[in-house]
Design a protein around this nucleic acid. Structure first.
Lengths: 129, 129
DNA sequence: GAAACTTACATGCACGCGCATTGGATGTCA
DNA sequence: TGACATCCAATGCGCGTGCATGTAAGTTTC
């Protein structure tokens, strides 16, 4: 019974790999095609919109980093992209001028809300009932 | 009950993301540090070694591609890397000169066998009992 | 059997990632 | 106060990936 467990971990890993790749590819493609958003970009918007409900969620970079599976540098550039697209604004923090606050712009909020159904649909296709 | 299902798919996806990232990062790091192998490289060796048991498994590129979550171009380059390291050899197929056969070299076989315990250990740490 | 199509693999290219480093701000200790 | 460690974010760099394309070899159609 213990020997069989070896096969199990491989199988579980293969299955995880399959689900991850299928889902992330489709998410990436759909979000890009329909909303001009990468998956990382979307995830940032998602967290920001959760942060402060509606009307401009804000969060520090460090907090975002902790909630995402993205390195500090990758996150920094993702935010740069979002900022360039006008979906997010950076603001220095008064209390700690090393830190940066992020704020969702109205346009960012709008884009996120538009993309959310696409996101859900894809997830439901892969995990749904 | 149906409304809750929406939360479920997100949760399932988050969980998949977490497991995938944690596991693949650790696999990548451990394989690289201990055996100078990337995860993609290892997966190719793994399939090849399964293909024909011991003594030089061989397979066509197309078959490999079908078994991996890797684009055709990425696979081609992965094999180039493996070939450069002497772990694999390319051979043109007599019957179809477009196709390439891949063969595990003794060195490749050895490297794979050495790396396998590392691979298993990591998987067991993440999926085990 | 020649032209049109398809298939297998390699390669140019752009992009996003992680690692390491940098630069500026903050905290600490003597 | 001055020296040093720590922290936050940005950036240089190299790498692996996917997409689009190129090239050569097989297949189909007439």
């Amino acid at each position: 019974m213990e020997a069989v467990a070896d096969d199990d971990v491989c199988t579980q890993w293969s299955e995880t790999l399959r689900v991850y790749h299928d889902t992330s590819c489709e998410l990436e493609n759909e979000l890009q095609a329909r909303h001009e958003l990468g998956l990382s970009e979307f995830e940032v918007l998602k967290i920001l919109s959760r942060r402060c409900g509606d009307g401009g969620g804000k969060a520090k970079m460090k907090d975002l980093e902790a909630e995402m599976y993205l390195s500090q540098s990758a996150l920094s550039r993702t935010v740069t992209r979002l900022e360039k697209d006008g979906l997010v604004t950076r603001a220095t923090c008064d209390f700690d001028r090393r830190a940066m606050f992020l704020m969702l712009t109205p346009s960012g909020c709008e884009r996120y809300e538009a993309a959310r159904p696409t996101y859900r649909t894809v997830l439901e296709r892969h995990f749904g009932r």
